[in-house]
Write a protein that binds this DNA or RNA. Structure first.
Lengths: 337, 337
DNA sequence: CTTATAAATGTTATCGGTTACATCAATATC
DNA sequence: GATATTGATGTAACCGATAACATTTATAAG
């Protein structure tokens, strides 16, 4: 691999001149610039960015903590991040945490060992408070998709409460009274917000909240299937099921069908995220569309702004949602409670 | 951020001693080692890995080119890669190419600019031959999931021909004679192999190959839907459709149902990959299971072996497949042909 | 034709580690 | 007790680029 010294020698100039010819061309005469560029070409010289970054102290890498890339929604978010990062000259170091806290910590440490400049986390389980304490220094971090309670950091999220409320209203307007919710893990702020929105709508409609209709899932197809099966086994089963993501909704649809019921004839099902499979389920899924790629690109922009000191006090960017009505939701069955 | 000099000063030793105390502890007396470690702790010293890697010339980063992370199968492969890379002290620089060749080249160049040590590509469109020529130096590369024709490089793949043959045989055994195949883009080696396997099975069964039953898709749900719709409009429509991935198969199922036909009563549908959604489609999808995570981890292992000079002549690792029979395939309708 | 000023280029310290080599002390060998 | 050997530590070069500062050359002004 040729280095800047080789280029300087071949061009008959100093290393500083080579560096300037490449970085600030207007500081170098046309003649020397030409000589330098020709030498660069002849040697196939490529600057060693490891050296550049070491010297500058900027790695231009961003760590991304994703609970699981196997989740279609997150995949879209990552895609948006990658595009934005590339546009701004950054690279993404991807970490599929799989809820392994040691793994998360290990990747977060990359910022402190100068392997990355900052970190983006989706779905925060919150553990970075300790990490920040321990090192004393602040970890440049942006949070996307789910709000972090304990730490004030730039965030891009949906108004999950309003979205869940809107979907619940949609089901109420269809005449449903017993609306179950297949939610996420209990402690998740995301789940808390969506359950709050669900209750907002119930309260506004004067429908009593029934704890037994709240079922905790884990965002997988399997858990949606299991949840629906168990909800239908209740003494008073629901006529509508609102799922916190589309995977669980698709799992729920299968569970309902296997119980010999029809969707939406007997039970309506609604999802959240509008993943590509939502439009292809049978029946196609009514869901809340989120601008997934925009979550990613916005998170990256926020983080880079933060790194460049261009950011005020931990802004919260709220992205819009859209209720997509498809065939999985319909009028409540006549004999409904 | 404290550096090694700060530690040396606080511990009252030289920087070399600090470095040795941390890297080769047995070269340092117990007494000094203790002093050094205590100073490290007191200062919260973390070695600047940017400096280490610059000096060593090893970045410990691997570029991963993925056509699209939105593809569930690739998401699993990436998950496997990430796990393996982390275990071996490497990080993944993820590039979602979206079939943008400029993007691919841009990321491939990261190896030449010392931002990464090597590259893994899934689904090669082949363009790195030129890139290698241009720079003169070899690009340490591993290919996964799809074989690269023009370049001899370590590869981990399925026996796609055998797998496609097995699935086609399964359909033939069910009595199907008109078996369509929704394949990938024409030039893809992956598609070529699978089509070859499909023809192997037809030939072995003495069934004539019909060009009109070969429909090129692009691995998306939409393209599967479109393909199925158009195949059913043929004068002699197929009674079975073998799709080159599960997304297209799920799209095809919807297209077939919307045409008023049943799966598998009128038309059987088979997929490839066994993504999580396959078991949750209606009917559940018969498909070829691939060890996706293992593709990823094996690719990473191969690349690291290659980088460490531990690899012989471009090995090809063949991973096993498994035909998963579910409800989307059934006996050919009686009046078939 | 000088001198002042600007433009172009060169010299060299620097970033933070690692490591070859030098040095010095302690123990072993004869 | 002198020398060889081993062990522990220090000194400084080095990786490849950048940029502060120094120096030279060209241009402008008087």
């Amino acid at each position: 691999m040729s280095n800047i010294r080789d280029v300087a020698q071949l061009a008959g100039v100093s290393v500083a001149t080579v560096s300037r010819a490449l970085q600030q061309p207007d500081l170098v005469s046309l003649k020397t610039r030409t000589k330098v560029l020709s030498a660069v070409k002849q040697l196939g010289y490529k600057p060693n960015l490891m050296a550049v970054r070491f010297r500058s102290g900027k790695t231009r890498n961003l760590v991304v903590l994703v609970p699981t890339v196997a989740n279609v929604f997150f995949a879209r978010v990552i895609s948006g991040m990658q595009q934005a990062a590339h546009d701004k000259g950054y690279s993404l170091l991807l970490c599929n945490t799989l809820a392994d806290e040691a793994m998360e910590q290990s990747y977060a440490r990359m910022v402190h060992t100068s392997q990355a400049d900052g970190l983006i986390q989706l779905r925060a389980h919150n553990p970075f408070a300790q990490l920040e304490m321990k090192t004393g220094s602040v970890l440049p971090m942006v949070n996307a998709c789910e709000v972090l309670d304990r730490i004030a950091c730039p965030t891009v999220l949906l108004d999950n409460r309003a979205a869940a409320c809107a979907m619940t209203e949609h089901l109420l307007q269809l005449g449903h009274k017993r609306i179950a919710m297949i939610k996420g893990p209990a402690r998740s702020p995301l789940t808390r917000d969506r359950v709050a929105g669900y209750r907002d709508a119930l309260d506004a409609a004067g429908v009593a909240f029934d704890e037994s209709l709240l079922y905790p899932g884990d965002f997988t197809l399997q858990s949606g299937h299991k949840a629906a099966t168990e909800l239908l086994a209740l003494a008073k089963p629901p006529t509508a099921v609102f799922c916190e993501n589309d995977e669980m909704a698709i799992g729920a649809i299968q569970g309902i069908k296997q119980a010999g019921l029809s969707v939406p004839g007997d039970v309506s099902v609604a999802g959240f995220d509008d993943i590509s499979f939502a439009a292809f389920s049978d029946p196609p899924l009514t869901t809340i569309a989120q601008p997934a790629e925009e979550f990613g690109s916005t998170a990256v922009s926020l983080l880079i702004d933060l790194l460049d000191g261009r950011l005020g006090k931990a802004p919260k960017v709220i992205l819009p949602f859209d209720l997509i009505q498809r065939a999985s939701t319909g009028p409540a069955p006549a004999v409904s409670d």
